[in-house]
């Protein structure tokens, strides 16, 4: 009698566990996380419970405004270990832009990393629209930053224009 009552419970629980486990594995295959932080961050962001380390983010912002870009990236990476926060990823991409920007030529390697990071920022932002309210920035949307990085990576005749040295960093 007890066995007859328990069997549907076992079967239902087993089915739910199997579906949940299969969904988690499918998610791992799609997102390819590289650390435990990315795995837990992915799951918590899926249920809207992901929070960045605010102290580390503030440190990163301070370094960013002081022009210490590698230090800023380290702090931002600590703040958003799971790489699930669009705003933090935007600032990381911006550090690549500012560090890689040059009056005569840009650092393509840094711009490429910046482009990959801003793409990540757009991907993790619901709806893909990312606008950062920061008066210190001349580009406040991920779309502007992305376009600027792409322009920097494109080689064209205009690159040889000598007046280019008068352009300013954004």
């Amino acid at each position: 009698m007890i066995d007859n009552m328990r069997e549907p419970v076992v079967r239902s629980a087993g089915l739910v566990a199997t579906i949940g486990y299969a969904a988690a594995i499918a998610w791992l295959y799609v997102t390819q996380p590289q650390s435990v932080a990315q795995v837990t961050g992915g799951f918590t962001s899926a249920i809207g419970a992901y929070r960045i380390d605010q102290q580390a983010f503030d440190d990163g912002l301070r370094f960013f405004r002081a022009g210490q870009f590698p230090e800023a990236r380290a702090a931002f990476a600590r703040a958003d270990a799971a790489e699930r926060d669009g705003r933090t990823q935007f600032y990381i991409a911006y550090t690549f832009y500012r560090q890689g920007w040059g009056r005569v030529y840009n650092d393509d390697a840094l711009f490429t990393k910046g482009l990959a990071t801003v793409d990540k920022a757009i991907a993790v932002t619901p709806g893909g629209r990312l606008v950062v309210d920061d008066v210190d920035l001349q580009m406040r949307s991920a779309d502007e930053l992305r376009a600027e990085l792409q322009r920097g990576l494109t080689h064209e005749a205009d690159d040889f224009n000598p007046l280019k040295i008068f352009r300013t960093r954004k």
Binding site: G14, A17, I25
Partner: peptide, 20 residues
């Protein structure tokens, strides 16, 4: 029912995960 509903699916899914 335990083997069919819990043990086998979870074991095979774990194998699929690790082997991949």
């Amino acid at each position: 029912a335990l083997r069919e509903a819990v043990v086998l699916p979870l074991l095979f899914l774990t194998i699929a995960l690790v082997a991949g």
